[in-house]
Amino acid sequence: MIIVTGANGHLGRAVVENLLELVPAEQLGVSVQDTEKARDLEQRGVRVRRGDFDDAASLAHAFEGASQVLIVSAPRLGEQALRQHRTAIDTAKAAGAQRILYTSQMAANPASPFAPAPDHAATEAALRESGVAFTALRNGYYASSALMLLGSATQTGEAVAPEDGPVAWTAHADLARATAITLAKGGLDGITPALTGSEALDLAGVAEIVSEVTGRPIRRVVVSDEEFRSRLVAQGSPESMANMYLGYFAASRQGEFANVDPTLARLIGRPPLTLRDVLKATLPTGR
């Protein structure tokens, strides 16, 4: 049985929907914190059980009979994230899973200034140490995050942010499809190449596309890190969130999200969705 954690989330649910096209529903199980939100999957024949990364006993029940377990990374940082991931890895191993898959990130690196990246690198190390066959899916930077980085630019006409670098923006839909194919058919072992879209664009390029789609001109304005931090805090953002943003910009300046790799296109059998494709499906169109 293939077990997918986080199946009520954006990526996890999309993986399950793709798996239902590739394997019989009775071969699928999901581990979710809120089983009520997954009742529709249960009605379609998927096994639904409660699983919490902070509750090893619940995970043991959710992972029962697993041949493969997909661990969708926890929305946590630092030691809490690593503790939760280790619990999931240890429980999957104890359940007899023959392979563990994990949604890592293309910038996974202990020295990265982008806060999630060292956590992903540490989880990859834990997977190696587990002795179980594994696949660490080094996902590209989510295209859906591009609008967050623009902030209020569609209202103000200015994309105000520190100097940045190119990013190989990648659609959730493509990553979900690749993950499902890997679970159903194999093909990727160990730490994967970066699973990315086909082009890398900086924030000025993002702003240009948003301008084209919405018909609202947006000008890229570069400010210092400290000025950007001050702006965020003045707008009510927690210091931790400001630091996360600044870490992203520092990592992008170092080229940590710039690599464009053909592996994702090969896996899904078509060109990946572009950032323009994603934004056109998200934003209201202009003239």
Rank of each mutant, 00 (worst) to 15 (best):
D40R: 06
T196C: 04
F134V: 00
Y141F: 07
G215E: 13
S240M: 12
I100R: 05
G157R: 09
D225Y: 12
G255P: 00
G197C: 07
S224G: 06
A194Q: 09
V223M: 07
I3M: 14
L246S: 09
A81M: 15
T274F: 04
N18R: 12
S240Q: 13
L175P: 04
A107L: 04
L127D: 02
L20W: 09
G269V: 03
T282A: 11
N18Q: 15
P262Y: 08
A207L: 13
L22Q: 08
N139H: 08
Q155M: 14
L283I: 02
R47I: 00
N139P: 02
S211K: 00
A97K: 01
S145W: 12
A133V: 04
A159M: 01
T123Y: 05
G12P: 03
N8F: 09
E21D: 09
H61M: 13
E64Y: 12
V223I: 10
R270K: 12
T282N: 02
E158G: 12
P284V: 15
T5S: 06
P113S: 01
L232M: 11
M244E: 14
P284H: 11
Q33K: 14
T170E: 05
L267V: 10
V4D: 11
V260F: 08
S240T: 10
L246M: 09
H85W: 09
Q105A: 15
G51N: 02
T179W: 01
L275A: 04
P166K: 15
P238Q: 09
G165L: 07
S73R: 07
L150V: 07
E79G: 06
P110F: 08
V223R: 05
T5A: 00
A38F: 12
P271M: 10
T123I: 09
Q33P: 14
Q68L: 04
W169S: 01
P262N: 08
G65E: 03
T154A: 08
V16D: 04
V4Y: 10
Y141D: 02
V132P: 08
E226I: 14
P262S: 14
D52C: 11
A242N: 15
R83I: 04
L188N: 11
D189W: 13
